[in-house]
């Protein structure tokens, strides 16, 4: 028996937490928003979601095989990337476009940097940015929500503000937009679950949403401090981005102070792009820009070394 003792460095006990569990919990928290999306826009959304997931997972497995690395699909991270990418796509986007986005997200956005934990940019958002640049028409062709008269295309509220859309409509998702971003109440349910169970902290969503709200209130109209801030918070991908994209551990700062700065930057860039930029929506690019700033933020927000000021 003496030959069989296991020797390893301390500690010898661990929490039950695992990276895989975290990924699956985040995935679970996104399910309500997905169901809402499919209900609101119809079955085509489901095919987009499934295509996003399957192509992301296959790409991950293929590249890990090619790299000679262990295939780690069980960790759920590729699935989550595919899911998040699908959530920020229009419901009527051709499935081959979705697949291209997933391949880009995993191959270039994640694996090219060295795989899980090493990527600079949020892979799902990198995928979306790529699709928006490559096929802008597909990426801006919107489907009307269930119950609307004209079922083909219309602008998202951000393109053409307030065409008969109430705050309540925004809240329950009765508007056109991307699959996973429209139903705010479903997103908030998932976000609440993540906050309560400690999988995300409040810092990034709070400073992101607050900054975007204040910025659009201050500069969102012809006169100062009269912008429709609540409209800006509830529309576009702000809620999805603030709770589920910007909080991605890998691409956000490590400390709470850093997270507040990161969220502030995301909110600021979102506001600038939405109000003064060429695109109607700014969440995706705002987060990607702040992803790039993350190492810098980490450098200047190191924790205080014990025994020093």
């Amino acid at each position: 028996m003496n030959n069989k003792l296991i020797v390893s460095t301390s500690p010898h006990i661990y929490t039950r937490e695992s990276s895989a569990k975290i990924m699956w919990m985040v995935t679970l928290s996104l399910v309500p928003a997905g169901i809402a999306g499919v209900y609101i826009f119809g079955l085509s959304s489901l095919w987009v979601i499934l295509t996003g997931i399957i192509s992301a997972v296959l790409t991950e497995a293929a590249i890990q095989k090619l790299r000679g690395a262990a295939v780690t699909l069980y960790d759920g991270s590729a699935l989550l990337t595919g899911l998040l990418l699908a959530y920020c796509l229009p419901p009527a986007v051709p499935l081959w476009v979705v697949a291209c986005g997933s391949v880009f997200a995993i191959a270039i956005g994640k694996q090219a940097f060295g795989g899980l934990g090493q990527n600079i940019f949020n892979p799902a958002l990198a995928g979306r940015a790529f699709l928006l640049a490559a096929w802008p028409t597909y990426m801006t062709t919107w489907t009307n929500p269930r119950g609307a008269l004209d079922a083909i295309t219309s602008a998202t509220p951000l393109d053409n503000a307030f065409v008969g859309v109430t705050y309540w409509d925004l809240f329950i998702g009765r508007r056109s937009g991307c699959i996973g971003e429209v139903c705010i109440i479903a997103l908030l349910a998932g976000a609440l679950f993540l906050l309560m169970s400690g999988y995300i902290s409040w810092h990034i969503p709070f400073s992101f949403i607050a900054t975007a709200g204040i910025f659009t209130w201050a500069f969102g109209a012809d006169t100062l401090f009269s912008g429709q801030w609540l409209f800006h918070i509830l529309s576009g991908g702000l809620i999805l981005g603030a709770f589920f994209m910007a909080t991605d551990y890998v691409t956000s700062p490590l400390t709470n102070k850093g997270k507040l700065i990161f969220g502030f930057g995301c909110g600021l860039f979102t506001g600038i792009i939405r109000l003064w930029g060429g695109y109607p929506e700014g969440v995706c690019y705002a987060i990607l820009l702040m992803n790039a700033a993350c190492p810098l933020i980490d450098r200047y927000t190191r924790p205080r070394r014990f025994g020093t000021k």
Binding site: I6, S8, Y14, I22, L116, Y249, T255, R302, T308
Partner: peptide
Amino acid sequence: VKAPLSQACIRCGRCIEVCPMGLNPSA
């Protein structure tokens, strides 16, 4: 017995939050 698997760091920051010495164990 749960042997350390030493998977990739996902930069969750939990180690920083608990480190009594104010270090960044992840980095």
